[in-house]
Every structure is written in structure tokens, then in C-alpha cells.
């Protein structure tokens, strides 16, 4: 994979979602809502989940913080909607492994999300990118859904 410059990362991926976040706002009714933050930086996410059986039928978020935290959450909601809880959990774990440098990240499975890999070069920002995903994993657990 061609290594993305910081400018490309921002301009091609992050800023689009930051300026026009998908699924931003409350989701009512919902089965699970939880609020998490990065105590070090003050980034905040409030994540709403609604299940239909084992499917994540609805997902939305509120939040404030840096562009990477908010854009990553926006991308996450786009990708997760309609997946099974198990698939969602597996994807979140796979993103975490990619950010930890443990996995290359499969472009076919990740789609746009593979761009998040650009953040790996900026270690202090990884926790920003993972805030939404960690919140999702907790939300699946709180909803009584099996992890991937």
C-alpha cells in the first residue's frame, strides 16, 4: 500500500466525514446508549445502538472532539449498519489489531476504513481513531451480543 501523507489522509478521508458526519444525532428508540471519552484529550462519543435480533439495525452517534475521532466514528456507523453483532465485533477487533500494527488490514473487507491505517503513523492519534470502535465493542456487550 502506498503510504499516505498526512495531508492526503486528512483531505481525502477524514475531513469529508468530519464536515459531513454520517448518522450523527440521537437514535430513538434505542436498545443501548453509552458515552465514552478519551480522558487524555477530551474527545467524546455517545453511541446509540438498536438491534433487530442479532443485527445492528440502527446505529448513530453524538460527540465532539478532534477530526480523527469524529470521522472514525462516522465511518464506523456507515460500515456497521446492517451487519450482525458478531460481524460488527469482529470488524472492531480487526480495526484495533490494524491500528496496533498487528494486522495489515484487508482492503476488501475494510473498504474506506483502510484509510484509518494512515493514522498508525501518528501514534498519539490512534486512541482518537479507536474511541468509537472501543465504544462499539462495549455497546455490543451491554446489549448482550456475543463478541466476534
Amino acid at each position: 500500500m502506498v503510504r499516505m501523507s498526512l495531508e492526503d489522509l486528512y483531505k481525502e478521508v477524514i475531513l469529508d466525514h468530519y464536515r459531513a458526519p454520517r448518522n450523527k444525532g440521537r437514535l430513538d428508540p434505542h436498545d443501548v446508549v453509552l458515552e465514552r471519552n478519551n480522558p487524555l484529550c477530551g474527545d467524546e462519543i455517545e453511541l446509540f445502538l438498536r438491534f433487530d435480533g442479532d443485527t445492528v439495525e440502527g446505529i448513530a452517534f453524538e460527540g465532539k472532539g478532534c477530526s480523527i475521532s469524529q470521522a472514525s466514528a462516522s465511518m464506523m456507523t456507515e460500515k456497521i449498519q446492517g451487519l450482525s453483532a458478531k460481524e460488527s465485533g469482529a470488524l472492531a477487533e480487526s480495526i484495533k489489531a490494524m491500528m496496533a500494527g498487528e494486522e495489515e488490514g484487508d482492503p476488501d473487507a475494510l473498504g474506506d476504513l483502510v484509510a484509518l491505517k494512515g493514522v498508525v503513523k501518528y501514534p498519539v492519534r490512534i486512541k482518537c481513531a479507536l474511541l468509537g470502535w472501543n465504544t462499539l465493542l462495549e455497546g455490543l456487550e451491554e446489549g448482550g451480543k456475543p463478541r466476534g
Binding site: L6, C41, G42, C66, I68, Y122, V124
Partner: peptide, 19 residues
């Protein structure tokens, strides 16, 4: 956002704190 600012201006050699 201050975090974005700190990461971006670091590329220009400028070290600031954000948070």
C-alpha cells in the same frame, strides 16, 4: 481542533501542546 492542529503543525517542525 487543537489535536488536529498539533499533528498538522508538527509536520512544519512546530511543537505545541494540545489537550
Amino acid at each position: 481542533h487543537p489535536h488536529d492542529m498539533a499533528t498538522i503543525i508538527d509536520q512544519e517542525g512546530v511543537c505545541i501542546r494540545a489537550g
